[in-house]
């Protein structure tokens, strides 16, 4: 299956590449969009092959990254529009989706999106209990109860920031 991005026929005329997800689906992406990813750019510089296989990014995540890249490669959009797209892009996304997205942006080296997603994740993590964080990241608690209690004690060295505002 070949899925074109939203500007299908227009970009097809330009140079384009096919990116295959770990699920086996293929996405047609304009080269101008693909090279916004530092990793893809390197791959394209190194080999003539127009088919890139990404073994650790699934369909859903790859489609999101490609939508982002295509929007940012669109010269017709103002920077302001792109910024508001970025905000829109991460808003409302589940934490679970974001953590795979952030991983994909890291693999593909899409720095701007990586920052945006990381920021959004941090926003969600604000004022969450440690148990919540462990659950969402699926992390095993490797502390002994004594060690955990000790860290809690050490961390209590200052007052609660939430009562304070700098400047």
């Amino acid at each position: 299956m070949v899925t074109t991005d939203e500007k299908g026929p227009l970009t097809a005329k330009k140079k384009s590449v096919i990116i295959r997800s770990c699920d086996g689906d293929e996405f047609l992406v304009s080269e101008s969009a693909a090279v916004l990813s530092t990793s893809l750019k390197k791959i394209l510089e190194e080999k003539e092959d127009r088919l890139i296989h990404l073994s650790d990014i699934d369909n859903k995540t790859l489609a999101m990254v490609i939508a982002y890249l295509s929007t940012h490669a669109d010269d017709g959009l103002s920077d302001d529009l792109k910024r508001s797209f970025d905000q829109e892009f991460v808003s409302g996304k589940e934490f679970d989706v974001l953590k795979y997205l952030v991983l994909a942006t890291d693999t593909l080296q899409v720095t701007c999106l990586c920052y945006t997603v990381a920021k959004k994740m941090a926003d969600i993590m604000k004022n969450k209990l440690v148990e919540w964080v462990r659950r969402e990241f699926d992390i095993q608690n490797d502390y002994t109860p004594e060690a955990e209690a000790e860290i809690r004690r050490l961390d209590a060295w200052a007052w609660d920031d939430r009562q304070l505002e700098d400047d």
Partner: peptide, 9 residues
């Protein structure tokens, strides 16, 4: 929130 992160693992 920082403290919570340090307690994760």
């Amino acid at each position: 929130s920082r403290d919570a992160c340090s307690l994760v693992c």
